[in-house]
Amino acid sequence: MPLSPPSNFFLDISIFLWYYFNVSFINCAWMVRKRFMIEVRELTKSYGPTVAVNNVSFDAHAGEVLGFLGPNGAGKTTTMRILTCYLSADAGSASVAGYDVFEESVEVRKSIGYLPESAPLYMDMGVIEYLNFMTQVRSLPKSERRARIRAVVELCGLEDVIQKDIGELSKGYRQRVGLAQSLIHDPPIMILDEPTSGLDPSQIIEIRNLIKDIGQEKLVLFSTHILPEVSATCSRILIINDGKIVANGTPEELAGQAEGEEIVHIVIRGPQSEIEAKLDALDFVSQWAHVETDNGVVGYRVTAVQGTDAAEALFHVVVDNRWSLTELRQESVDLEDVFLNLTVRE
């Protein structure tokens, strides 16, 4: 089957170019004011003597799913509350969708959909009644209200519970009503504070998928203290600890920059003193240590300089000396190590 005829092809190209030109032109006009959807500069906030957020700066673009990762009490919620104009900061500046958080707070709030931690909702209201209230206070035009409610009910899977009171719903459904509420005005930016806390595993997966879907076109900033969540959903990770941003990058970047070294587990059957002398002599080995093994054979945990392919080199060393190799394993440095390295202080 031939591809589309050439005449069409050129037409397509020219339409594409025309479109591209216009779009990029429009984008340029926007960019004067809105280079980043979220722009945070040296934000600081303390509650009395405790510094909750300490000199935090970061940017976020549209179409990103930004994971805000950190142990409990690291300052995630406070940062989010400042961005949503619930609290103000002691110092620094922040802008959302091009509007200053402290000066143009109503505009900022219009462009954000916010789900606070544990989805606080009015328990004595019905689901529909609540969503309807939200369309009113969000000042959606009357003609669009029904359609928007229908859209978010469908998106969040609330069809089965629309007749119920929020107080009767399970935790998972309440979380979804909270999400529906934050999506009702179709905001360009979503800020979700621990959207999956307290849910069961299948609900967590549903919410994650929902976040991914939403993240296709919107900027989603969500916080969590659960590690696998960020690698499953985020395009970028911010790790925050003690109120400071300690890492900022894609999941792969962070796992890559974990440490400048490789760690290899190796168990060798052979004359122990010779092996150890050899390990000392190898120039790519920065340090090594004994490791207990089950069958009494001595194992080593070898730390090597990065980029030297330590596992393969060690294998050749073993072969050249005609020892026998019982175990050779590269320790994987993953997000978990990064997280622990950055957030645990001895």
Binding site: Y86, V106, E117, L121
Partner: peptide
């Protein structure tokens, strides 16, 4: 108490 004030006060209302 419920925390709903956080949603309420982050709506575009004065």
């Amino acid at each position: 108490k419920l925390g709903t004030v956080e949603i309420l006060m982050t709506l575009p209302i004065r």
